[in-house]
Design a binder for these strands. Structure first.
Lengths: 234, 234
DNA sequence: CGTCAATAAACTTTCGAAAGTTTGTCGGTG
DNA sequence: CACCGACAAACTTTCGAAAGTTTATTGACG
């Protein structure tokens, strides 16, 4: 039986690959996930696919309708706004704790993550409209590092889970690029500054603005998209 | 094939039954969940059990170690405290929103839930040391009703999920009963009062105290238990 | 020509067993 | 007597197919 793959169990491996394919936009929101197709693509039997999908469903990345199979979680403006609200509340909460509780090792990792982010180019080389994959990874790592000082791993895990789901939406309107005038690097510097000076209020405020701003741009981009073709509404 | 059970798919049904058995204390924390045994008990094949367990694992009720099967999530003082902290933060947050956003229908449901709770006897009929099952259900329903005014279903779901996990700990030290002097009914009345007068600060403070108090009693009970036999430590 | 029921196709769910891994046992050796 | 390695038992994971459900198609009737 096939037993390689780098992970420990095939199910874990398949789940990771499915997750990556969904978050990277290779499997689009609303897309049906049929077992015959997946089975061929991922070279795994129905059981392991089912396990992977059930796990992703519990996380909110896919949706399961009884006897109608699985679907990549469909996107809608309402859900994006709900998710954003939840992120603002929870991430602010965790960031406050992180800023207060984080030790020196946390500080160092945060500085390192910011340095990496700052030195990574934003747009992909060939295509100025597409965000670079490395930058996306560095961006996620920086935000994770920001929260990582929080000693309550449970709260931290929930906050990171919400960020993960938000990735889905980021890819949604990616081809349209961000607002040209936005000072993204500045926002990140402000976050770093507030964290290093141990100012929870400033950090929370900066993060709040950062997240809200991103969503507003996303919604605007979606509106523009609507004028050309119907959007993926629920 | 067996197709009854009241639910839509066998997997859902088995998951619900397993969940109930864990929360009610019929399956104790740390207990190994072997497929041969479960398969016989729940009259279902390995696949559906696996699905159910994977889902519960994603929720935190059971734990999965690769190639070593599933275990009912073991309890420890550290984890209880971490969970309590998370609950205090998140439930307070959701309750504030609930109190501000809840409409008349919410108010009515809340009053109804409180009435049910108040008229349900606390200790089981035969055994004064054991909490009545109906009371436990009414208690859970009242707290759910408190939070239910929050329009952000995502935040609400997370808060309820944490409460669920906490149930695990409640059963842990149940045989020892609660502190005699505690005015539980009074605490619930205070919560109701603050909610109905739409005072988010008072409501959050009351909930915070309520949750923290419960955990402190639980920890004290666990300490007393330690003097007789080793506790279920990690 | 549209509507509805019956049939066929496609897919999801569930099962039972094969394949693979861990855990426990037994016998031999230093 | 303790320690180590091979063998066996028990269990987990994975598979492929049977069972059951939904969706699409076809043909008859109003």
């Amino acid at each position: 039986m096939v037993a390689k793959g780098g992970k420990q169990t095939l199910g874990d491996d398949v789940r990771a690959r499915l997750r990556a394919d969904i978050l990277s936009g290779r499997l689009l929101p609303g897309c049906r996930l049929k077992f015959p197709v997946l089975s061929a693509h991922y070279d795994a039997s129905v059981s392991v696919l089912r396990e992977a999908l059930v796990r992703l469903a519990e996380q909110g990345l896919v949706r399961s309708e009884p006897h109608q199979g699985f679907v990549v979680t469909p996107l809608s403006r309402e859900k994006l706004w709900e998710l954003t609200e939840a992120r603002i509340e929870l991430e602010a909460l965790v960031l406050r704790r992180s800023v207060v509780e984080g030790d020196l090792s946390w500080e160092s990792r945060l500085v390192a993550a910011h340095h990496t982010l700052e030195r990574t180019r934003y747009t992909a080389e060939g295509d100025d409209q597409r965000v670079d994959d490395d930058w996306a990874a560095a961006h996620a790592a920086f935000h994770a590092a920001l929260l990582d000082g929080c000693t309550n791993r449970r709260l931290l895990r929930m906050a990171l889970g919400l960020r993960d789901e938000a990735e889905l939406y980021r890819r949604w309107s990616q081809p349209l690029g961000d607002e040209p005038g936005r000072d993204l690097a500045g926002e990140h510097r402000a976050l770093l500054e507030a964290a290093l000076t141990r100012d929870p209020d400033a950090a929370a405020a900066a993060l709040c603005a950062h997240v809200r701003h991103t969503t507003e741009l996303l919604l605007a981009a979606a509106d523009r998209l609507d004028h050309e073709q119907p959007a993926p509404e629920e």
